[in-house]
């Protein structure tokens, strides 16, 4: 446990490198604000989905369409990835770059696994069930809400991958640390959004109907 102090004494890196500079603090605050806006964005998408949830027209309903095992697995994977991103930030606070990069790498792999499951699910609906964006109001709302989340996951995967590269090239500094920190905030956010999607879209659709 003496590592952070030893580092500070040698002038290497402060304990919370993401908040060591004004730029870093601004970045973290600005990102919280951005997530506030994102919350409204997804809130509006959820409101839309809830309004149109039973408007299936001639298409299949939620309970006919969804298969819980796949989405439950996806949920499990994404929740674990949130945990690994916490481990990454803990490694950053210990000043351990290798461990940080490793945990970020595992987060990315889990994110990819989630995305593969989602793409598989969408292809099943589109190819096998002939169920697309234009089928019904419910299908439009479903693809838009879940697709927006999926696009966020994809963006997060690319972002964190680039940050891993920067960690190796530039090292863990007061410049790179805030970037890693806000990417972890982002990752938690899309994880929380998914928890709501799993509940409102899948559980409500499958169980309540």
């Amino acid at each position: 446990m003496t590592t952070p102090h030893a580092q500070q004494a040698s002038g290497a890196l402060p304990h919370e490198p993401e908040k060591a500079t004004l730029e870093g603090r601004n970045k973290v605050l600005g990102f919280w604000l951005f997530l506030g806006g994102e919350a409204v964005l997804f809130g509006t998408l959820f409101a839309t989905f809830l309004t149109l949830r039973n408007q299936v027209a001639d298409g299949p309903s939620a309970s006919e369409l969804f298969s819980l095992p796949i989405t439950a697995a996806a949920t499990f994977i994404l929740l674990i990835s949130s945990l690994t991103s916490v481990f990454a930030i803990q490694a950053m606070h210990r000043g351990n770059r290798t461990s940080l990069a490793r945990w970020l790498g595992i987060t990315v792999v889990l994110g990819l696994a989630f995305l593969v499951l989602e793409i598989y699910e969408f292809t099943e609906y589109i190819v096998h069930d002939d169920y697309g964006m234009t089928t019904s109001a419910f299908s439009s709302a479903f693809y838009t809400l879940v697709g927006f989340h999926g696009a966020h996951v994809l963006f997060g995967i690319l972002w964190i991958s680039i940050l891993i590269g920067q960690l190796f090239k530039k090292g863990l500094t007061v410049v790179t640390a805030p970037k890693v920190y806000v990417s972890a905030m982002y990752w938690h956010f899309i994880d929380v959004v998914w928890v709501f999607i799993f509940t409102v879209v899948y559980l409500l659709g499958k169980v309540v109907g």
């Binding site: 839309t48 309004t51 149109l52 408007q55 299936v56 027209a57 964006m133 234009t134 089928t135 019904s136 109001a137 419910f138 299908s139 439009s140 709302a141 693809y143 838009t144």
Partner: peptide
């Protein structure tokens, strides 16, 4: 061609 506001396909 989505149906958010298209009443024929359940939109509102």
């Amino acid at each position: 061609g989505a149906n958010f506001f298209n009443v024929e396909a359940g939109g509102n």
